[in-house]
C-alpha cells in the first residue's frame, strides 16, 4: 500500500506537453502516404535507369512533379516522427537523446525541403 497521492507521484516529472497530437499527425501522414506512395514509386523506378533526359521527361510533367513534392514532403515529416519515437524509446541518456532528437528534426527538414526544391527546379527548367 502506498500512501502517496497521484498528484504527489507525478509532481516534478514534467508535463506530457502535447497529448495525442504526435500520434494523430503520424496517422494523418500515413493515410496521405498510401495514395502518394502508389503514385510516386512506379513513375520513379521507371525513370531511375533512363538517364538525365528521362528525369526531366518525368518531372517536367506537372502532375508527376506535384505528386513527387507531396511524397517527399509528407515522407520527410513521417520519417521525422517515426525516428523521433525510436530515439525516445531506445536512447536513455538525456544528453545524447536531446542531441539525437535535435539532429533528427534538422536533418529531416533539410532533406524534405531540399527534395522539394530539387523537384521544383527540375519541373521549372524541363
Amino acid at each position: 500500500m502506498q500512501f502517496q497521492t497521484d498528484r504527489n507521484r507525478v509532481q516534478g516529472l514534467g508535463s506530457a506537453k502535447e497529448g495525442v497530437g504526435h500520434w494523430w499527425t503520424t496517422r494523418i501522414t500515413s493515410v496521405a502516404l498510401v495514395p502518394l506512395t502508389l503514385l510516386f514509386i512506379f513513375p520513379f523506378v521507371n525513370t531511375l535507369g533512363g538517364g538525365y533526359e528521362a528525369v526531366f521527361d518525368t518531372y517536367g510533367h506537372p502532375l508527376n512533379a506535384i505528386i513527387a513534392i507531396l511524397f517527399i514532403g509528407v515522407s520527410a515529416h513521417h520519417l521525422m516522427q517515426g525516428v523521433q519515437v525510436v530515439i525516445e524509446d531506445y536512447v536513455p541518456n538525456k544528453g545524447i537523446r536531446t542531441g539525437a532528437l535535435l539532429a533528427n528534426t534538422l536533418i529531416c527538414w533539410a532533406l524534405g525541403l531540399t527534395g522539394v526544391f530539387a523537384i521544383a527546379k527540375i519541373a521549372f527548367t524541363a
Partner: peptide
C-alpha cells in the same frame, strides 16, 4: 516495422541526393 521505417532513411537520403544532382 520499426527496422524498415528507420532503414528507409538511407534510401530517402539517396533519392533526395539523386534529385538534387539532376537539378
Amino acid at each position: 516495422h520499426r527496422i524498415t521505417g528507420v532503414g528507409m532513411s538511407l534510401a530517402f537520403f539517396l533519392i533526395v541526393w539523386w534529385l538534387l544532382a539532376a537539378s
